[in-house]
């Protein structure tokens, strides 16, 4: 794949990952509530990780460590791509 397409695909994939895991994760907890919570009106959490309700834990980890890892991968890959472009591989 040429550098131009790789840049666009990588950006799109990273954008989607950050949006889903960092931005709108809470929407899935609400829409898919049966996976995470017991019946209404109490909606007690079904699963726990390190003592936290799973939806809260995944929000903490997703919006911080996971998206930072995605960002680090993006930065590392774009550094390589930039060098390729400098060496004259145009897309």
């Amino acid at each position: 794949m040429d550098p131009y397409r790789r840049e666009c695909w990588l950006t799109a994939i990273c954008f989607i990952l950050v949006t889903v895991f960092g931005g709108i994760l809470s929407v899935f907890f609400v829409v898919g509530k049966d996976l995470f919570f017991g019946p209404a009106p109490a909606y007690a959490a079904k699963r726990f990780v390190l003592g936290f309700p799973s939806h809260y834990f995944w929000l903490l980890v997703g919006s911080w460590l996971f998206v930072t890892a995605v960002g680090a991968f993006y930065a590392w890959y774009m550094d390589r791509l930039e060098k390729e472009i400098e060496r004259g591989k145009t897309g």
Partner: peptide, 24 residues
Amino acid sequence: FYLAIAIYAAFTAAFLIMLVVAAP
């Protein structure tokens, strides 16, 4: 409570959006 945490989760992730679509 939870709403504040959702706000700041989005705020943290927003930096990565900035990274992939705008910063460099």
